[in-house]
């Protein structure tokens, strides 16, 4: 199966600011890997349930009990930028 990746779109989705040269290189490499990976399509899987997990466990819950939070100072000490008790980032351009 020939693979044709819109690599610029994929990079935007993945929030990676890549140069045109990088995009070209990654597209070529990804296409090679994906052509190999696309071998999975050769296997007939009609009626086969997907496995998203090697375990067949269900209902792993915790009780609704409050536990200790982290120390705010220890958390914010790792922040690249902060303002008081807030994390600070450049302005947001897009709505969620």
């Amino acid at each position: 199966m020939p693979i044709d990746i819109d690599i610029a779109k994929v990079a935007r989705l993945a929030r990676l600011a890549l140069s045109d040269e990088e995009l070209d290189l990654y597209r070529a490499q990804c296409e090679v890997v994906l052509e190999h990976a696309a071998l999975v399509q050769a296997l007939p899987t009609e009626g086969v349930e997907p496995t998203s997990h090697p375990l067949r466990r269900t209902n792993a819950f915790r009780e609704d009990v409050v536990t200790e939070c982290l120390d705010t100072e220890e958390v914010l000490a790792q922040a690249p930028d902060r303002d008081g008790n807030y994390f600070r980032v450049p302005p947001i351009l897009e709505e969620p």
Binding site: R12, L16, A17, Q78, A79, P80, D81, P90, P91, I92
Partner: peptide
């Protein structure tokens, strides 16, 4: 680049994130 680790600047948070990750 928001809460920990490396940050590379950008004019908007979107650019900052994309620059940081790249």
């Amino acid at each position: 680049g928001v809460r920990y680790g490396l940050r590379r600047d950008g004019d908007t948070v979107e650019e900052m994130m994309a620059n940081t990750r790249a």
